[in-house]
Design a protein around this nucleic acid. Structure first.
Length: 801
RNA sequence: GCCGCUGUGGUGGAAUCGGCAGACACAAGGGACUUAAAAUCCCUGGCUGGAAACAGUGUGCGGGUUCAAGUCCCGCCAGCGGCACCA
């Protein structure tokens, strides 16, 4: 009988759906397993072939764990707020909610057609008021604990669209949509104090099992550095504090630089004789877009402040102070001591402005380039530090600064607070009322959710405010505290909000008394295995860890980390090896592949395509190999014979294969697991028959990869129950060994022969047999044996002279 | 510039701790079956020389350690991704 994948796949998808076969149980006494994949943004384009790579991988793990007796929660939902939907709504005058519903329906159908074992009874949607009620609730908790605050911030402003853009919408310094320049505009923004958690976000990485590249990117992103804050007295009679990671080079500080936005400039205005020049520079710097700033990064600019000079605290020499945009107001103190001898940027600046370069660490040639090595140099021209190593000097000078009240050790982070406002419609409204008398007043929890009102148009206003600002009836309210007229906050939350806690909601998605019941959270958390793209390492993953830690601090969740394990899949590229995109014309639609080859074949192919963690080019021709594999399994039903234990010829092959497949699934080596199954199938084919025990074991092993065909075969062969509800197969390590193996025999490292030996044979026995063999004995005649090596089951090497 | 990843046949990729390089597939060539094609099955295959046995050579390049290196060490080259004046 021919395998009709289309009808078989539909049949089983229907059965699984009607029986809720893969729903997680609320029996909290069972051992649990909570695998998680990133829920998709339901875009208008539908599913990408990249989605099934991640989803199938953890589906395989989830299915295996179910068979191993775990209570498995493998959920799915929709991260549905966001710009593309809003832009589509603006363009086509359709409510974003309608667009979302349509896209979700399509995505859901596509996911179901892949046979993924999601628990659809726990489906969530971030745009559902019953969901975002709790997103707003978390925001209120953050606000009440002082972690949400409003601040004047510079934001991205598109000069042509006249609207605020998120950082993601600014590509190469221009607007992603219209290509016009993007400039900075100061606006009052909601911010979340993620910086307060910076150290814990680094430290607790030691307690979780994340792949190294995720850990290192997070650490780099947070960007911890240690150094000292140093106070420089100025001729204006005040103190200018700088931050430096190289306090050891203090004797080489020959000038200072402050950021163009530094507040001291106003304070010093009366003393500065070239204030016009300074103001012109400030304006110039403000006008520059990020793009221009990075374009001119190598060419340093700046203005020397006339009228105020700094005093080096160790040399007591007066040194000039410059303003330059290479010093950022947002990092450290917005002021630096410049050590041109030992900092590349300071060196470039000093060369350009003809400033003195003093060598204080021996080892390089500071006339040629800055010498920045900290490991080998010895301090010179540095008074009390002379002769010390850099490390010793850092310690000594920091102590000296402390003792003399001129500075102290300091840790800084590159991580900035999270800009949490968007001037957009399609997001969670921020549940705050702004009252002239009472300030920012949080909504009462009983008034949540604060739902999005219907608006006429979703376009941002000319002033860059959210479309909600035009809704007078919604905006104008009375202050819950003083009863005076007040206004609602009209900004909405960024897309990252809903995805920062969604894994908590899955634990108890219909809970009305909290984000989820305490019992559910205690049972299911942490997520045991979270797989997702590397592009989410520094934003989503960091944001959700931050929220989780906050919820832990206020007693809502009982684990300090949300995810016990984090892995990441590689991208699937187009057939030409480039990133898949519409403009490159190399997009593969999973629907087409399913129609032509079936879901099982697609699943198998995506897992066989290569190393799961690396990117791999799509190759439609190669899919046929996976289709053939499944058809050969199908055809085995024709040579099925009675038998309730493995036949001797295949016993070792089965035990070996079970071991390999079981271990490879856990190690995410799906490609080699499939290769092992193909090898086993070839061996069965050579033998020409398969019995019931063997076929059952094979179907159980293949089921996580190809769930439909295995279910159908299980039923057609009259085996009891469903294959997906069987016990996972086990192996006996003793039975994985062949009685005899072929080893390679080398003389002086060159292969001279091959020989069959017993796996039980000792090293002496094998070496004796090797030396006596017809191929090897003549080669050893008249030579002195130097060394004999036997690597059991692999090779023997005779070294002689 | 900095950080990370990668470099293996015509192609995708295998190769626990250093132990037979090229598993498993795809594509290709040859054969069987067929009126024919598709499908299926069998055989061949890193490269060079040779009819063959076999010999030499081979994991980006150059050195090194070792009985033994794709794997470890030192120095390069190329490609991809991310960050980018973070003091």
């Amino acid at each position: 009988m021919k395998y009709d994948f289309a009808s078989v796949e539909k049949k089983w998808q229907k059965i699984w759906e009607e029986n809720n076969t893969f729903a997680a149980s609320n029996d909290y006494s069972k051992p649990k397993f909570y695998p998680l994949v990133e829920f998709p943004y339901p875009s208008g384009q539908g599913l990408h072939v990249g989605h099934p790579r991640s989803y199938t991988a953890l589906d395989i793990v989830a299915r295996k764990r179910r068979m191993e007796g775990y209570n498995v929660l493998y959920p799915m939902g929709w991260d549905a707020f966001g710009l593309p939907t809003e832009n589509f709504a603006i363009k086509n005058h359709i409510h974003p909610e309608i667009v979302t519903q349509k896209n979700v329906a399509r995505f859901k159908e596509q996911l179901k057609s892949l046979g993924l074992s999601f628990d659809w009874t726990r489906e969530i949607n971030t745009t559902d008021p019953n969901y975002y009620k709790w997103t707003q609730w978390i925001f209120l908790q953050l606000f009440k604990h002082g972690l949400a605050y409003k601040k004047e911030m510079s934001v991205n402003w598109c000069t042509s669209c006249k609207c605020v853009l998120a950082n993601e919408e600014v590509v190469g310094g221009v607007c992603e949509r219209c290509g016009s320049p993007v400039v900075h505009k100061v606006k009052s923004q909601w911010m979340l104090k993620i910086t307060q958690y910076a150290q814990r976000l680094i430290d607790d990485l030691d307690t979780v099992n994340y792949i190294d590249r995720v850990k290192t990117s997070q650490i780099n992103w947070i960007g911890r550095s240690t150094g000292a804050e140093i106070d420089f007295a100025t001729t204006a009679g005040d103190v200018l504090t700088v931050y430096s990671t190289r306090p050891d080079t203090l004797y080489g500080a020959t000038y200072m630089v402050i950021s163009p936005e530094h507040p001291y400039l106003e304070k010093w205005a009366d003393r500065i004789s070239n204030m016009d020049e300074i103001r012109a520079y400030q304006e110039e710097a403000a006008k520059k877009s990020d793009f221009e700033r990075s374009e001119v990064a190598k060419d340093k600019t700046g203005v020397c402040i006339q009228g105020v000079r700094g005093i080096n605290p160790v040399t007591n020499e007066e040194i000039p102070i410059f303003i330059s945009d290479y010093v950022l107001m947002t990092y450290g103190t917005g002021a630096i001591m410049a050590v041109p001898g030992h900092d590349t940027r300071d060196w470039e600046f000093a060369k350009k402005f003809g400033l003195p370069i003093v060598e204080v660490v021996k080892g390089g040639n500071v006339e040629e380039e800055a010498y920045t090595d900290c490991d080998t140099g010895i301090m010179v021209n540095s008074g009390m530090l002379n002769g010390l190593s850099v490390e010793e000097a850092k310690e000594k000078i920091t102590q000296w600064l402390h003792d003399n009240g001129k500075g102290h050790p300091k840790v800084n982070y590159k991580l900035r607070d999270w800009v949490f406002s968007r001037q957009r419609y399609w997001g969670e409204p921020i549940p705050i009322i702004i009252c002239d008398h009472c300030g920012y007043v949080p909504l009462e929890e009983k008034d949540l959710p604060l739902t999005l009102p219907e608006v006429e148009s979703y376009e941002p206003t000319d002033t860059g405010e959210s479309p909600l600002a035009k809704m007078d009836s919604w905006v104008n309210v009375t202050c819950p505290i003083c009863g005076r007229p007040a206004k609602r906050e009209t900004d909405t939350m960024p897309q990252w909000a809903g995805s920062s806690w969604y894994f908590l909601r899955y634990c108890d998605p219909h809970c009305e008394t909290g984000i989820a019941s305490k019992e559910a959270l205690d049972y299911w958390l942490p997520v045991d295995w979270y797989n997702g793209g590397m592009e989410h390492t520094t934003l989503h993953l960091l944001y959700s860890r931050f929220w989780h830690k906050f919820l832990y601090d206020i007693g809502v969740v009982s684990t300090p980390e949300p995810y016990a394990k984090r892995t990441s899949h590689g991208m699937i590229l187009g057939e030409n090896g480039e990133k898949m995109s519409k403009s490159r014309g190399n997009v593969v639609n999973p629907d087409d592949i399913i129609r032509e080859y079936g879901a099982d074949t697609l699943r198998l192919y995506e897992m066989f395509i290569g190393d799961f963690e690396k990117s791999a080019p799509w190759n439609t021709a190669a899919i046929r190999g996976c289709k053939r594999f499944l058809e050969r399994i199908w055809n085995l039903a024709d040579i099925l014979v009675e038998g309730d234990s493995y036949t001797p010829e295949l016993e070792t092959a089965f035990h070996k294969c079970i071991k390999k497949v079981s271990e490879d699934i856990e190690a995410m080596k799906f490609n080699t697991a499939i290769a092992a199954l193909m090898t086993l199938l070839n061996e069965i084919g050579d033998k020409g028959a398969i019995n019931h025990a063997e076929y059952k074991a094979l179907l159980i092993m293949v089921n996580p990869f190809a769930p439909h065909i295995t279910e159908e075969l299980w039923e057609q062969c009259g085996f009891e129950g469903m294959v997906s509800q069987q016990k996972w197969v086990t192996f006996d390590p003793e039975k994985c060994k062949d009685a005899q193996v072929e080893i390679a025999v080398q003389v002086n490292g060159k292969i001279k022969a091959r020989m069959m030996v017993s796996t039980e044979a000792s090293s002496q026995e094998v070496l004796a047999a090797v030396k006596a063999s017809a191929e090897i004995a003549p080669l050893l005649e008249g030579k002195t044996l130097v060394k004999e090596i036997y690597v059991p089951g692999k090779l023997a090497n005779i070294v002689c002279k």
